[in-house]
């Protein structure tokens, strides 16, 4: 059971600290399935905080998204800490941000939230056979209870969990200052990259056709990039005109190059929170791209990002004996 009273107490105490600027958590949205990020600046606002199977959003993205407005002359910038609620996967984004100095450790108060998996709303809709307005949801012993307009409905966890959660090995935060709730037993020991292997098993032409079909639907809304906690360059090279890496036009060539570039820039950095795929309005299976690189990184370099804040970034390091059987 999620002890919301406890959560709100933690939040109130945290936001009352002099060195904390604001507290980022989740609150109920205004429409079914939609949970909103909640920025708590006053203790009273803490009462809206929730933690439920609907809390998909990786809030770590707000650490780097925060706009740094020009500081008026004679004033000092607000350098107080940001408090942040993180699930296991989200916490790995925090670690990766520390590795690449996107944030500094003393800038954040990490509220670690052991997580039993979040809902993939598309799966629920499929099971119900129609769009539904899930107002609330909660975990209960291997089940997820959803509150629908006409009463509660029970689902078996595995049926409705997001794909990333089924294979989650880090349900507990890997870094935190305050732990909210009790740690959970991981239900998956090893990532088998099944969905990647399925694609790898196809012929070249089948793979090309598969991805071309997916990429052809891309509308280049850049949601995948914008939601990603690790895509935080001030000036993304994919937006630049000088030089132009990717043309503005939306066509299969540019879409393909865009998606390849985005995925490649996350190689050895993606912590598999699945936010890009969740927010994609045209349902491109982006995690199948990201996971391919995770698999390659694991197999070739025995590396997993977002676990050790002291680790060297994968692409800014090498080993003399790195695999090279492909070299002529």
């Amino acid at each position: 059971m999620v002890d919301l009273e406890n959560l709100r107490t933690i939040a109130k105490e945290t936001i009352s600290r002099e060195d904390v600027k604001y507290f980022i958590g989740w609150r109920e949205g205004t429409y079914g399935f939609s949970v909103s990020p909640h920025f708590v600046r006053e203790p009273a606002e803490a009462d809206k905080l929730i933690f439920s199977p609907l809390c998909s959003n990786n809030l770590a993205t707000y650490l780097t998204l925060a706009e740094k407005l020009p500081v008026p002359r004679g004033q000092e910038p607000d350098t107080r800490k940001v408090a942040l609620m993180v699930k296991g996967c989200d916490s790995r984004a925090v670690v990766q941000l520390l590795v690449e100095r996107g944030i500094e450790r003393e800038q954040v108060v990490v509220i670690g939230c052991p997580c039993q998996g979040v809902i993939d709303t598309k799966k629920v809709e499929q099971l119900l056979g129609q769009p539904e307005n899930v107002v609330r949801a909660r975990w209960e012993k291997g089940k997820i209870i959803c509150q629908l307009p006409d009463g509660e409905k029970e689902f078996i966890k595995e049926e409705v969990l997001a794909q990333k959660c089924l294979k989650c090995r880090y349900p507990n935060p890997v870094i935190y200052d305050i732990l909210f709730g009790e740690k959970v037993e991981p239900w998956c020991q090893e990532e088998d990259f099944q969905e990647v292997k399925e694609i790898e098993g196809l012929t070249l032409q089948e793979r090309w056709d598969y991805w071309q079909e997916k990429f052809s639907s891309c509308i280049r809304c850049y949601s995948c990039r914008n939601v990603c906690p690790l895509c935080y360059c001030e000036d993304c090279i994919l937006d630049r005109l000088n030089p132009t890496w990717i043309n503005r036009s939306v066509n299969i060539s540019e879409n393909t190059a865009f998606q390849l570039s985005r995925a490649f820039h996350l190689a050895g950095r993606c912590i598999e929170c699945g936010e890009c795929e969740r927010v994609c309005p045209v349902n491109i299976p982006l995690m199948k791209l990201n996971k391919k690189l995770s698999k390659a990184v694991k197999e070739m370099f025995d590396f997993e990002p977002g676990l050790d804040p002291e680790a060297k970034p994968l692409q800014a390091s090498y080993r003399p004996d790195d695999k090279e059987d492909f070299i002529l």
């Binding site: 990647v196 694609i199 790898e200 070249l204 032409q205 089948e206 793979r207 090309w208 056709d209 598969y210 991805w211 071309q212 393909t256 390849l260 995925a263 490649f264 190689a267 791209l289 391919k292 690189l293 390659a296 070739m300």
Partner: peptide, 8 residues
């Protein structure tokens, strides 16, 4: 790896 994966 990535390029081969998307069918190049």
């Amino acid at each position: 790896e990535l390029l081969e994966y998307i069918g190049i």
